[in-house]
Simulated scan of single mutants.
Amino acid sequence: MGTFLQALLLGLLVGGVYALAASGMSLIFGVMRVVNLAQGGMLILSAYLTYTLWETIGLDPLLLVLITTPCLLIVGWATYYVFIERSRTTDASMALVTTFGLTLITKGVIALIWGNEPKSVTPDYANRSFDVFGLKLPQAQVYACLVAVVVLGALYLLLRRTWLGRSVQATASSSEGARLIGIEVRSTWAAAYAIGVGAAGAGGSLLSVLYPFMPSSADHWIGLLLAIVVLGGMGSLAGSVLGALVIAAAESLTATYISPDWASAVPYLAIILVLVARPQGLLGARLREDMSRA
């Protein structure tokens, strides 16, 4: 029983960080109906920025969330106006191709600047753990999860308690209806994309403490993020949190009781099962076909 609880708690701690990383992707899809395949590249870009700042100024990598989040938010805002906006108005599939191209560009730029060697961020507490009722809880996972919860809480308040958040929600429900009540939809789309990429900035800093990374790691993370948002329900932030916790716990239990090699297959198995059994995801709403095309 102790082994099961240990594996489950470790999975849930990592799941909190997964939830933050996936929340941006879910937000972008919910508002713009764009599957942002560039999100994995943004995560790894943030991880490399965290690594560089940690080595240069020695600031705790978890505190660097305060720097990487606004930096990636600016990157997201610029990326929307330069690349995403035109592709969205041309054809729906073009936005998907564009974000995939952005991932390739991001990986190339990262490799050019930092090289292809794996990097890792190892603060003093990276190899320490808390002993709670005989269970070992790694300090890095505990601290990263707490920071993720705080950032997710701030994102929730932003979307629920501010004018910008209400504009994002109205635009997600109906862009035409939002225009009728005076909302500048173009700016709201840009803000939603920027916030989504900013969330990847925070998530990348936290993940840099938990896992080694290299430019090609973007491919792994985009697959994992897709699995999370599909499982939780495309466009549902609450679904992303639930999907992240389920997948992270399943990965941890699989690694403990079967093999670590099989843990990497869990996200893709989740995608297959969800698409077969419940295509709208755990908390997603099934849309009428005519409405989904509007």
Rank of each mutant, 00 (worst) to 15 (best):
A238N: 09
A244E: 08
H220M: 15
M234E: 02
G177Q: 10
S216L: 14
S167E: 12
A200Q: 12
A238V: 07
L245K: 14
A202Q: 03
L231M: 10
Y156W: 13
G223K: 01
G198V: 11
I181F: 00
V209G: 00
A194F: 00
F213D: 09
P215Y: 07
Y156C: 00
F213E: 07
L158N: 06
V185A: 07
V209T: 07
L224Y: 02
S205E: 05
L157F: 11
A194G: 03
R160Q: 11
S240M: 05
I228H: 12
G235L: 11
E176A: 14
A191W: 08
A192N: 05
I222Q: 12
Y193R: 02
A199H: 03
F213K: 10
G232S: 13
L157W: 08
G239Y: 02
S216E: 15
I222Y: 07
I183C: 05
L224N: 03
S216Y: 02
S216A: 15
V246K: 04
A178G: 14
F213N: 09
L210N: 10
G177A: 13
A192P: 04
G196C: 00
Y211V: 14
A172F: 09
L231I: 06
P212K: 09
P215H: 13
G203V: 08
A172H: 10
S173A: 14
L158I: 13
D219M: 08
A199L: 15
I195N: 11
A200G: 14
T171K: 10
V185C: 03
S236E: 02
L157Q: 06
I228F: 08
L231A: 07
E184W: 04
A238C: 00
M214N: 12
S208R: 12
R186F: 00
G239F: 01
S205Q: 07
V229F: 01
S175P: 05
I228K: 14
G204I: 09
R160S: 07
A194S: 01
R179M: 13
S205V: 10
A190C: 03
V185W: 06
G204E: 04
A199E: 09
V197Y: 01
Q169E: 11
G201D: 08
A191Y: 09
H220D: 13
V209N: 01
G235D: 10
A244H: 09
L224T: 14
G182V: 01
V229N: 01
L157T: 05
L207H: 03
L164Y: 02
L245M: 15
L210S: 12
S216T: 15
R179K: 14
T188Q: 04
G243H: 10
R166Y: 04
I222M: 13
G235E: 10
S175H: 12
Y156I: 01
A178L: 14
L237A: 05
A170M: 12
S187V: 00
L164R: 01
V209M: 02
L159N: 08
G165R: 11
I181S: 08
S187D: 04
G223W: 09
L210V: 13
A238F: 06
G201A: 11
Y211L: 15
E176W: 05
R166A: 07
